[in-house]
Design a protein around this nucleic acid. Structure first.
Lengths: 340, 340
DNA sequence: GTAAAGCCATAAAACGTTTTATGGTGGGGA
DNA sequence: TCCCCACCATAAAACGTTTTATGGCTTTAC
């Protein structure tokens, strides 16, 4: 019962050689039409499917790609409380793959040994938020494994295999929204990972400040510091002698929730005295008191775009235009009503 | 560059046989301590890792489990709009696995040929919401592949390898809540899939009605009918001559959003005339007007429990107690304030 | 002093494919 | 009649492991 149908069973049943079966099934070699038909018929009847492991041993594609969530690698745990962008992205990628007759597996940092099995045999990779000059990208490049990153590797301007949300416009939307509702002093709280998510947002913020004549106020805290990091960031900002900012843009949801708590415990009312937006929606944003206005990065769209581009690189689909990416501001209780 | 380090390379370098290397690495066979140490040292130096494909050919575990989302199989698409329980579950399972040095891949209906490659070589499976006497379970049982289901197979009372939310208590909470806020006639809208999610909820509902002396009113619509199904369910309920129910419990979020729309277009005010709760939270619930009160099934908890139990079955972990499951009612705009 | 019992190492088979190289048959051209 | 070639089919090697069977060498037991 345990035993599966092998190519030998088909060969015996069809009265031909193993080679004939292989050729008939894969359309290679030379074989007469009638033999091919017989073999295929027998294979179908027996429910034969080539064992992908045996096949993979000879370097055929497995129909399986890998997904690496780099921020979780550096975080150390794959279950950070209150962060759900990653689970949403992973689920969405999986679903995108299924619809394309492929599968996806989630993979840890490839440069950390021991690697989990199979990882070097996958057909391709999606790398979410690579760090600057990410060693994983060196590894994949060296092994000739195709990949697409979500977010640029900021240390490799020449690389083209990436997709990303329009960070610049997002930042612009947030800052202009703040400004439009009267906020003048707008501060930014970012993480410390050197990925495009942090660096591009900072650049966009600084550009906007320059154009608007606003003095930039930035606090950086490690992503791993969580809400404590957000609290500390607020204290740091308040210590610069420029007073309480009118608005705060925290890239990560956990920083935002810490920042909100700190502001309130300092007696600063949100949103009337200071408005707050998180750059990445999460459960913590939704369940804070008041719930934090946030940007929904639409991981489903990101996944669709990334998978599409990877399929192009794998030659499984022709190079059509990729789905457009855009994110969405979800106003909640930490922003004043904006003109929409 | 492309070529990986093989067991033969290690053997040559260490001056021993291939067998010796295999035994040294896997702790099997008989080998002296000194040889083992040498081999391990060489393997480490060369960065040797056994090829999982070659290894799998001999039936060793791949470190990879499969996840099947049965409702999506019957739905036909893996990307149903407005349903996010599945992506959340998939992501959470992935993350749970990573934290255990395993990987997970999402897999389509195994009984549908052609199967995607690798699927029959996986170490184990998690099957979300199996249907009654699910053929997939027959297949896995026949192949001796360990599995855990999320939700019971209602046709196999003898099966023990499952985890589930406390559906009975959930239903009880919802119905008692309705009752406590004055609702007397409480109707139920379910799907038509014969899984424990639907059937257990119905049983719990009927039991409650009996105890409370309430006349049961149930409408069933296919899950695939989406919000149109919800609209139709409401029309069906209103046609029974018992008037507008005081409260409605719709198991699926899409049915709930259709039901809400239909009620409002019929001039029934929600929540003052009829209250509404969805049994499974989703984006559609959150973005309806008004947002629909819903039960968050806490897919992260479900995933943790399921993965834990599967690891026990795989013998990768001793049989400790599994994480407790519970879900959470999220009150929004379609319920009256309840005493909490 | 011999037999039995470890101990250690290895050769070879097996896993299920794909691919390369080879062979056999029949037909057509010279 | 002979040779070459096209056409089919197959044997065998290869992929990188694990496992089984075997054998030589030391000890230990009697």
């Amino acid at each position: 019962m345990r035993r599966r149908v092998t190519i030998r069973d088909v060969a015996r049943e069809a009265g031909v050689s193993v080679t004939a079966v292989s050729h008939a099934m894969n359309g290679k070699g030379t074989i007469s039409d009638t033999t091919r038909a017989t073999v295929r018929e027998v294979a179908e009847r027996l429910g034969y499917q080539a064992d992908p492991l045996a096949r993979g041993l000879r370097n055929s594609p497995l129909g399986l790609i890998g997904l690496m969530l780099r921020p979780l690698d550096s975080l150390g745990t794959y279950r950070p409380d209150g962060v759900d962008y990653f689970t949403r992205l992973a689920g969405a990628v999986a679903v995108e793959c299924l619809d394309r007759e492929m599968s996806v597996m989630l993979v840890r940092d490839l440069t950390r040994l021991p690697r989990s099995p199979l990882t070097l045999s996958l057909d391709g990779y999606i790398i979410d938020d690579p760090v600057e000059r990410d060693p994983v990208i060196d590894l994949l490049t060296g092994l000739d494994i195709p990949f697409v990153s979500v977010g640029r590797d900021v240390g490799r301007p020449e690389m083209t295999s990436w997709v990303d949300s329009p960070l610049r416009e997002e930042t612009e939307t947030v800052l202009e929204g703040f400004h439009g509702s009267g906020a003048r002093s707008v501060a930014l709280v970012t993480g410390t990972d050197r990925n495009s998510w942090n660096l591009d947002s900072i650049a966009a913020y600084e550009g906007w400040c320059r154009r608007r004549g606003v003095r930039p106020r930035i606090a950086r805290r490690p992503e791993s510091a969580g809400s404590d990091g957000g609290r500390a960031a607020v204290r740091e900002l308040l210590a610069d002698g420029l007073g309480v900012p009118d608005a705060l843009y925290c890239l990560t949801g956990r920083h935002a929730s810490g920042a909100l708590a700190e502001l309130r415990s300092l007696g600063v009312d949100v949103p009337t005295q200071t408005q707050l937006i998180a750059g990445s929606d999460s459960e913590q944003c939704r369940s804070s008191q008041p719930p934090i206005s946030a940007i929904d990065l639409e991981p489903a769209l990101v996944a669709a775009a990334a998978v599409h581009q990877l399929m192009v690189r794998l030659g499984r689909v022709e190079d059509s235009e990729a789905p457009e990416l855009h994110s969405r501001l979800v106003p909640r209780g930490t922003t004043l009503p904006w003109r929409s």
